[in-house]
Amino acid sequence: MIPAKFDYVRAGSVSEAIALLDKYGDEAKLLSGGHSLIPAMKLRLNRPAVLIDIGHLSELKSITEEGDEVVVGANCTHKQIATSELIASQASVLAEAARTIGDVQVRNRGTIGGSLAHADPAADYPAALLAAEAQIEVEGKNGRRKIPAADFFQGMYTTALADDEVVVAVRLPKGSQGTYEKFFQPASRFAIVGVAVVKRNGGVQVGITGASDTPYRATAVEQAYAEKGVDAAELAAEGVDMMEDHFADAAYRAHLAKVLTRKALA
């Protein structure tokens, strides 16, 4: 499998990447780890004329604390996230999700920024970010903005990211300790359903991926939790259209959402 022809540019900085995005418009795609983009390009489902490589930009590779937040650079690999002590102690829900992604090799190379921009409806991070009430920090020619996770994921392979914007970081509130329960699609290893739960201030925040064409916050569960406890999990699929494929029909996905939510709440 060979991608269609393209030009390749290495951006020297985020601002250079933005300038290049501005120049090439929707002809261009950003490349970080490439583990979402390159497979799609090999199948020629995606055929950008220009690839702007930001994968080597070290300014996007760090995991730091800023005030009440843990800031994860967009170029951090899944492995880096899965093994970071800071994340383990302040935003464990993200590490829990990271360690279920792909496989050893994919985690060594794939990045959080690339995964979020690609927005596969069965990706693992979205559940964790929704549950953590994380923000995705992006930068474009009009400067930086922070997009709440709940607004960022807009549908299958669709995000709030503008054409000229680069995902630069993910910001998670400290104390985003939680769990991620994933039921693997046995071929792709993506989630048939993945449920992340962060418990904060006596309440719960629940993010669900894989079940629907857009990852969602299980607000019905969250609202019922105080009263019903783990039984609130029964509301995990409430009001959400479930996806179907040859691994799992809608009824089974809804069932899994409940089972995994219960497990994650326990």
Partner: peptide, 16 residues
């Protein structure tokens, strides 16, 4: 191994 870690070389461009 790319810089010491296992990667899937089919999903990495030579230019990377």
């Amino acid at each position: 191994l790319l810089d010491g870690v296992a990667v899937k070389s089919c999903t990495i461009l030579a230019v990377q």
